[in-house]
């Protein structure tokens, strides 16, 4: 036993992270958004960020997804061919290309992530064209394939999203984001505002797609059931700070921080 303990090793810890945030802070005047947040995300890993309204989780997501600049701290991402690079030091075209190709952003309100006056098929195909696809037949075939993946009827391919229900719009937004096979997807309350029955379907779908495609994801939500189902790891935020983090089931079943305990005990059943 003692000999083995000496040679104790833990897996092969040489993993190239996909994203690394270091000391990220962002405030709005006197109001704190997020404060000194650091973490590392590995490829294919799904991380959940929970906390009540005003805890800073959406601010953090906006910084991580380059929609908002941090006051201090860095966000590095493993760029193809370039390795870890600070996303706020990229040129504007490089950052835009990154956001269009390697990332997906699923907004809480599908209206923020879809073009409402463009057909469903167009919404999906547009992203492909943005990364250079030109063959109409292939774009349409891929679009139809993705509509099927998110369980939208092929007969609706030429309809505009404004004629869709909220749940259908959200599924279309997911298809639009996943069609370019991003390595990282950001989700802000992906099931917010949907009926419970629709939520379950969407969650199940997201869970399957994320696992099947091996996509890393950062999911912000106030719904602990969502992270239980989707996230490998959890960060609990309060007043802009991460107060507890770890394996999702560990944080939910054995919470240590007073705020996490309150959060978990306030839910009827997770």
């Amino acid at each position: 036993m003692s000999a083995l303990m000496l040679s104790e090793t833990v897996g092969t810890p040489v993993r190239q992270p996909l994203m690394r945030a270091t000391g990220v802070s962002k405030s709005y005047g006197e109001t704190i958004g997020c404060l000194d947040v650091s973490f590392t995300l590995n490829p294919g890993e799904v991380i959940g960020i929970v906390g009540e309204s005003g805890s800073g989780k959406s601010t953090l997501l906006n910084v991580l997804s380059a929609q908002l600049s941090p006051d201090t701290g860095t966000v590095e991402y493993d760029l193809r061919h370039k390795g870890m690079s600070d996303i706020f030091r990229l040129s504007e075209p490089d950052r835009r290309r990154l956001m269009r190709t390697d990332w997906g952003i699923v907004h809480q309100n599908p209206r923020d992530g879809l073009r409402m006056d463009v057909s469903a098929g167009g919404n999906v195909g547009e992203r492909l064209m943005a990364i250079g696809a030109r063959h109409y037949g292939e774009i349409r075939a891929e679009g139809l394939d993705w509509l099927a993946k998110v369980e939208l009827d092929a007969s609706r391919v030429d309809d505009k999203p404004k004629t869709f229900s909220g749940g259908m719009q959200q599924r279309l937004q997911i298809a639009r984001n996943l069609v370019t096979r991003p390595r990282l997807i950001f989700m802000d309350e992906p099931t917010g505002g949907l009926d419970v029955s629709v939520q379950a379907r969407l969650l199940d779908l997201l869970r399957g797609l994320v696992r099947e495609l091996g996509i890393a994801a950062i999911v912000v939500t106030h719904d602990l059931a969502v992270v239980r189902l989707l996230a490998d790891r959890l960060m609990v935020m309060r007043h802009g700070r991460v107060v507890e983090e770890g394996l999702t089931d560990q944080v939910l079943d054995d919470p240590h921080h007073p705020y996490t305990q309150l959060l978990v005990s306030s839910v009827l059943q997770v």
Partner: peptide, 12 residues
Amino acid sequence: DIVELGSAEPWQ
């Protein structure tokens, strides 16, 4: 390997 669960990273 031998993994110590208390100090292992979540992915491990």
